[in-house]
Simulated scan of single mutants.
Amino acid sequence: MANTVVITGGTAGIGLATAEKFAREGWNVGVVARHEGRLAEVEVRLRGLGARAVAVKADVADRDQVDAAADRIAREFGPIDVWVNNAMSTLVSPAGEIAMDEFRRVTEVTYHGQVFGTLAALRHMRPRGRGAVIQINSVLGIRPFPLQSAYAGAKAAALGFTNALRAELDHEGVAVSLSTIFLPAVNTPQFGGWARNRTGRRQIAPNPVYDPRLCANAVFFTALHPRRDVWVGRTTMMASVLQRLWPNVGDLQARSGWEGQLSNEPMPELPGNLFEPGPGSAVIDGPFSDQVLGSRHTFVTSRQRDIAVIGGIGGLAVAAAALVGALRRR
């Protein structure tokens, strides 16, 4: 019997790349999103890859809709093995120019959407005593940049929720894994006009820019080999290390993020997909394919980090012991 994965925001970009990856690997795939036309397109597309697929219309900011989507997919395929919280919304704007309903909407989709998705997944996984929930986060959840205050705040909240819930599940002895995958700049339709933008200039993806399929590979790896944290691309790992060791330097670096996210091309305000789904068909790639790095396997897991840290501590201990021995022989 094939395993089942549910992917929110699965009709474009990273979500669609992930859905296709699982479909090619023989999984049953449930996709949750808002745009009916893309949902129908993706369902046909995934079935064309040989998978059993169902696409469900739901707004992840509505808990009842998320619960109903989970129940429908479980009725269709049986137990849910992996749930990927990928849906997000954002806007590019100075914080003082963001309306309260915009802050609220980004939070409801990007943070509450992960909360509701996780709780729906646990409702199905907890009785079976197994399963994996994968949270798609961002380098901005580690090292916030200007013009991204609403999104960075929501991602930081999602990370705090995930870490607190992991401790609760450990305390209760519930064998459901919670993993967070931190992403760099990725070439998705977000940069093609889906992000609300009121800067008066076109948003660009700051280099280095990564392939959505790299992110999909990281998600699939994590589904099979659960890890606490996974960093995709060298920029996310570097940002994580810098934020922990020397956050003031990270602040200095972030100053360049304002201009680094904007081209000189003027443009009118974009409404984006904040309150309504973005236009267009189901596509994976955004407008910066010529900048994308070629590798689809550049990600680091917390286990690799832990091995490096333990190795470093061991090396220091050996060096310290050798120094003490040398001093005693004097």
Rank of each mutant, 00 (worst) to 15 (best):
A308H: 10
P226S: 14
E43I: 03
H297F: 03
V186I: 15
T180Y: 02
A239H: 03
A68H: 05
L16D: 07
L169T: 10
P94G: 06
T107Q: 14
Q135K: 03
R329D: 04
G314F: 07
A17D: 03
S281F: 01
T90S: 15
G200T: 04
T107C: 04
R213Y: 02
T90P: 02
R255C: 00
A61H: 06
A239K: 04
W246P: 01
L16N: 07
V29Q: 13
G78A: 07
G141E: 01
A308F: 15
R72Y: 13
Q291F: 04
E43S: 12
G280A: 12
Q114R: 02
R128C: 01
A185F: 10
T107W: 14
A55W: 08
E102Y: 01
S240F: 13
A95Q: 07
G315S: 13
V60H: 12
E102N: 05
S263C: 13
P146G: 05
I136M: 11
P226R: 14
V29I: 09
P268K: 08
V174R: 08
M100L: 13
G15I: 04
T11L: 10
Q291S: 06
E276A: 15
F161E: 07
V241C: 07
V186W: 07
A175W: 05
N163T: 08
I313M: 13
V176Q: 08
A2N: 15
R244S: 09
G129Q: 05
